[in-house]
């Protein structure tokens, strides 16, 4: 159906306004990050400078923090993607009796705030010697992200037609081969979506590493953000803003990279197809 031209233009205008509204809060971040005397006040920096960025990037502790964040986020998303991909297969393809309950139970667990289970997790980590290790944090974060991961993955897999797989099976391929060669290529957008979702969550998490890590050299960048708060509560807004911008970059890169593979974007519509 062809829309009237005036209606289409109006739609463009509305969308442009929405985009603008979404951009405005970022203005402060952008301005403050190039201003040495930044404050919460929005003002055009008088002498724009990249000094904030330089001091943030050249600080070896910060680099260490970003590296730690990266290690945590990469392991977390890798574990979630691999495990939930495997788990989604039987949940999507097999006629299992309890699968609805399984899905319900794991998704409901996500309404429990992670803070509520941190103390038991802290004790668990200590008794198994897992505390103060990036890997164990990553596995814990992976576990808390699994419910979402499985849900999304299952729905993506539901929308891959079974017929393709059956054809492969006639040629003698088993489930694993079918998964690798038939399903996986078709699910690249889904896999990327789950990865981005989990990666950004793990990358930004403050409280889990704060409680579970001990040694300063293991701290991810989220924990190191306190460095911009002085003894007397003075905040170094300029460097904080620059740090924040740098902090966002990996997620932005990951997202734009994934866009190439996501012609249709983000499909979580499997539920429609039963």
């Amino acid at each position: 159906m062809k829309e009237k031209k005036s209606v289409v233009i109006l739609q463009y205008i509305i969308l442009a306004i929405i985009a603008l509204l979404f951009l405005i809060p970022l203005l402060w971040l952008a301005f403050a990050s190039v201003d040495l005397n930044a404050s919460p006040l929005l003002s055009l920096p008088k002498n724009p400078t990249i000094e904030n960025y330089v001091s943030v990037i050249t600080n070896p502790d910060n680099l260490r923090g970003f590296l730690n964040s990266f290690i945590i986020a990469i392991i977390t998303s890798a574990v979630v993607v691999v495990f939930s991909f495997l788990a989604a297969y039987p949940l999507s393809r097999y006629d299992l009796k309890g699968k609805r309950y399984f899905l319900y139970i794991i998704i409901f667990m996500t309404s429990l705030p992670i803070n509520a289970i941190l103390v038991p997790v802290f004790k668990l980590f200590i008794s198994f010697g897992l505390h103060d290790k990036l890997v164990s944090i990553a596995f814990f974060m992976a576990a808390t992200n699994m419910p979402y991961g499985i849900w999304m993955m299952k729905n993506f897999m539901d929308s891959v037609p079974v017929s393709l797989e059956e054809a492969a099976r006639v040629d003698g391929a088993n489930s694993l081969v079918a998964m690798r060669h038939i399903i996986m290529p078709l699910m690249i957008p889904g896999i990327l979506t789950v990865s981005i979702y989990v990666f950004t969550g793990a990358w930004g998490n403050f409280f889990v590493p704060f409680i579970l890590l001990q040694t300063a050299s293991n701290f991810p960048s989220s924990v190191r953000i306190y460095q911009f708060f002085d003894n007397s509560g003075l905040i170094e807004y300029g460097r904080l803003a620059a740090y924040s911008v740098v902090y966002m970059i990996p997620s932005v890169i990951l997202y734009s990279f994934s866009q190439r593979f996501m012609s249709k974007g983000f499909a979580l519509s499997g539920a429609d197809k039963g």
Binding site: P25, W28, P40, L42, W203, F206, S222, S244, M248, L254
Partner: peptide, 23 residues
């Protein structure tokens, strides 16, 4: 951008946006 931004950064932006001398 809002979605992929870490929560803590997100809150700094909004505190600056809503503060008395803010945007």
């Amino acid at each position: 951008v809002g979605w992929i931004m870490p929560e803590i950064v997100c809150s700094f932006c909004w505190v600056a946006f809503f503060s008395k001398s803010g945007t």
